[in-house]
Every structure is written in C-alpha cells, then in structure tokens.
C-alpha cells in the first residue's frame, strides 16, 4: 500500500502524561484524511512528531516513505504544514515571508514570481501582501498559513485545525481549497475537532481520543461502525393509519410509530432505504414534508466511540 504517513506504536509523553499512546496511523497517498478528536486528544502532538518539531518517545514514523527521526529537513522538502493558529514574524511583509520560505524550498526567482501572487490571490490576500504581518488580523494570518503550506506544491500537506479563527465564509473557502488541492494529487492530512468539516471534506478519517486511535477507515466505513438500530424520522402531511401499517410491513422495518405528523421508523438494515420508504408512504397517500436519517452521522459515531472508551477505562 502506498502510504503518505505511517506510524507504528507511536508514543509521546509529557512527563507522566501520555499524549499519544501506541498510535498506528496509515494515510494513503491521494486521499483527504481527517484526523478527528476533541481538544487535547493528541492530534497536534502527533502532527508535531510528523513534522519534526517533537521527538517521539516510542514507535516509528514514516512520512512519504522516509523514516522520521527528529530534525530531517529533506523529508519536509515535499510536504507543506500549516500549524494550528500559525504565528509568523510580525516584521515581515506577507510577500516577503513567502519569498523567504520559497528560497528555503529552493524555488527559483521565476518560480517565486509565478507562485507567490497566485497563492496570495488564492487565499484572498491580494492587495495586502505589502503590509507587515503584524498588521494582519488572525484570519489573515491563517490565510498566510495556508499559502505558505502550499508554496512548494507539496506531495503531502498537513493542516492542523485550518478553520480555527476563520469566519464562516473563510471556513467554506478553506474546505473548497482543500478539495481543490487534493484534486491535483496532493495527499491532505487534516486535523480538526469540527465533525462537519471532516464529514464534508474527507475521504478517510481517524478518530483519536486521549492519544488512542478509536477508529480509522474510509469515512463511509467509520460512519457505519455505529452499533444499534438506525432511526428514520419522516414528517408526513395527511399521515394516516394505513400509511403507518404499510410502512410497518416493509421487510427492513423493525418497528414504526407515530407522534402527530411525525413517523418514527426503526430500521434493521444499514443500507440507505429512504427511497423505498418514500415510495411506500406516497403509495399509501401520504405527502412527505421532511426525512431525517439518524445513526449514520459521524458525530454520533464519534460520541459512541468516546463513550465506549470511557466506559472501558472505568471498568
């Protein structure tokens, strides 16, 4: 398997606190891999080990096929990294910063002249590039962070909470940008505590809590990990008893009940059966106003996995 990131038994301690605990992580090349977990789960620590800012206390780390052991500049040649709430030297102008970083990557003057204006435009900083970074807002610094991470057209880009500090429009723009970058073949490793962000952008996801990986697979497979019945809630105009009975007789339905105009259907399958249910309701004279499938949501998976871990630890 062609992996962009691979960790085996990765462990990192801060004194007696185990920040990352025997973490096995595999990020396939060409994917958008979400790294999901609450604050303090060990996401940033893991990332800092990947980029060489921290030294692991145990386990092995491979990035783009190269073993990472502390400070290895050549590994970073093909990767871009945007730290959580990045801080840049306030005395530099936006374009100066990108120009200097470009030189560190060995970009020629011509490459810098082409790439920097393009990136400034892409992240919405065109016209502000000659201002000192000290005069930038938090959101603008975040945008500089994205631009510098893309500067070297990396094979792998690691984004640590890229939406933090951005306004809603900026958050949408970042999500679109991530998708765009991935289309060019770049592997994106995106750390976030925002479930909807991971859900909307990522193809794969690893859920981490208290330094331990709880699940790691495609987004679809992780979503399907949820145990227990799935519930389909349907709001129906002109809901009749015959509609309720018709739904109850569907083979994949465990039970169905009504509360006013809302029909609650308990399903025994994890397949998407919304079209069959819809057909049955319409056939029996009902008019569907809304339909909401519960039990396939990443948030619910996440909450269930975290609760399970806490229960296991309490035992």
């Amino acid at each position: 398997m062609d992996l962009a990131i691979e960790t085996v038994d990765l462990t990192k301690n801060y004194g007696s606190l185990v920040a990352v605990n025997n973490l096995d992580l595999q990020v396939k090349r060409g994917t958008i891999h979400g790294f999901l977990g609450p604050n303090g789960a060990g996401k940033t620590t893991t990332i800092k080990v990947l980029v060489g800012l921290l030294k692991a206390d145990g386990g092995t780390v491979k990035v783009l096929g190269q073993v990472v052991r502390g400070d290895q500049p050549d590994v970073r040649l093909n990767m871009g990294y945007m730290p959580e709430l990045p801080k840049f030297p306030k005395h530099l102008k936006g374009w100066e910063l990108l120009d200097i970083y470009g030189r560190m990557y060995g970009m020629t003057e011509q490459q810098r002249k082409e790439q920097i204006p393009k990136l400034l435009d892409l992240v919405g900083l065109k016209g502000r590039e000659k201002d000192l970074i000290g005069k930038y807002s938090k959101g603008m610094q975040q945008r500089v962070g994205i631009a510098q991470a893309l500067l070297n057209d990396p094979d792998l880009i690691v984004l640590d909470e890229p939406s933090l500090g951005l306004d809603p429009v900026g958050m949408v723009e970042v999500r679109e940008l991530v998708k765009e970058v991935a289309k060019g073949g770049t592997t994106v490793f995106l750390s976030s505590h925002l479930l909807f962000e991971v859900e909307q952008v990522c193809t794969h996801v690893t859920i981490i809590h208290r330094g331990v990986s709880l699940a790691s697979d495609t987004l679809q497979n992780v979503s399907n990990m949820l145990s227990g019945p799935r519930i389909l809630q349907v709001e129906v105009a002109k809901l009749s008893e015959s509609t309720l009975e018709a739904v109850k007789h569907l083979t994949f339905v465990v039970n169905a009940s009504r509360d006013g105009n809302v029909l609650t259907i308990e399903l025994k399958t994890r397949d998407d059966v919304r079209s069959q249910v819809s057909q049955e309701i319409t056939k029996s004279g009902g008019v569907i106003v809304s339909m909401n499938l519960k039990g396939q949501n990443l948030e619910e998976v996440f909450m269930q996995l975290v609760s399970k871990q806490q229960e296991d630890q309490a035992k």
């Binding site: 040649l77 060995g106 490459q111 057209d153 770049t186």
Partner: peptide, 9 residues
C-alpha cells in the same frame, strides 16, 4: 501550481 514540482525532489 508549479513550484519545485511534485515527486522526489
């Protein structure tokens, strides 16, 4: 985007 180019640089 074309900077230093993708691949093993």
């Amino acid at each position: 985007m074309t900077a230093a180019g993708k691949g093993d640089r």
